[in-house]
C-alpha cells in the first residue's frame, strides 16, 4: 500500500506492507536511521518521534496509521545548522554516552519542555520515565534538560558540575 506523510517538513510517500511498523518505514524506506529500535515492545523509548505534536513510539505504530501525519524525527530538530536547545543541552552537559537512547530521549525532552517550560527535577524525571538509558544513570540527562529549559526561557544555564571546582 502507498503511504504519505510529512516528515521533517518534507512531504514523502512510499510503499509499505500493511504490517510495516512506522519505525521500519522511517529507517528502511526513508533512510532516517536516527530513530532507533531498542525493544519492539514500547518499553525503552528509543524509537520516540513527534507525531502531530505528540511524543509517540514509532515501534508500536504501523506506517499505515501514520498516513497523512506530520512527523518530526531527531534529524529534523536542528534548524538551518542551529542545534535545538535540547540537543545543545545534551552536548554541553554530557547527557549521552553511547548515544543509542539519545534520539528518543531528546524527542521526549522536547515535548516535555513544550508542555512544561520550567519543570522541576522531579517533573523532568517523571517526564522521561518512558525512555530508558543504560549509560548515564539519567544524572546528566536531567542536567541537560535543565540546561535546555533555561536556554528556551532565555535564561543563563547554571554552570556544569565539573566547572564548580
Amino acid at each position: 500500500m502507498k503511504v504519505s506523510m510529512s516528515v521533517n517538513g518534507r512531504q514523502v510517500s512510499g510503499e509499505a506492507e500493511p504490517r510495516t511498523l512506522l519505525v521500519h518505514f522511517l529507517r528502511e524506506s526513508l533512510g532516517l536511521t536516527g530513530t532507533h529500535v531498542g525493544c519492539e515492545s514500547s518499553y525503552c523509548g528509543a524509537c520516540t518521534i513527534s507525531l502531530d505534536g505528540k511524543a509517540v513510539l514509532s515501534c508500536t505504530m504501523l506506517a499505515a496509521q501514520a498516513d497523512g501525519a506530520d512527523i518530526t524525527t531527531v534529524e529534523g530538530l536542528a534548524q538551518d545548522g542551529e542545534l535545538h536547545p535540547v540537543q545543545e543541552g545534551f552536548w554541553e552537559r554530557h547527557g549521552l554516552q553511547c548515544g543509542f537512547c539519545t534520539p528518543g530521549m531528546i524527542m521526549s525532552a522536547v515535548t516535555l519542555l513544550e508542555e512544561n517550560p520550567e519543570p522541576s527535577e522531579e517533573e523532568i524525571r517523571r517526564g522521561i520515565e518512558g525512555n530508558l538509558c543504560r549509560c548515564t544513570g539519567y544524572h546528566n540527562i536531567v542536567q541537560a534538560i535543565e540546561y535546555a529549559g533555561a536556554r528556551m526561557r532565555g535564561e543563563e544555564p547554571a554552570p556544569a558540575e565539573w566547572e564548580n571546582a
Binding site: 532516517l32 536511521t33 524525527t73 536542528a78 542545534l83 548515544g99 539519545t102
Partner: peptide, 8 residues
C-alpha cells in the same frame, strides 16, 4: 549522535 546521524 544528538542529530541522529551516528552510524550503528
Amino acid at each position: 549522535l544528538i542529530q541522529g546521524r551516528g552510524r550503528y
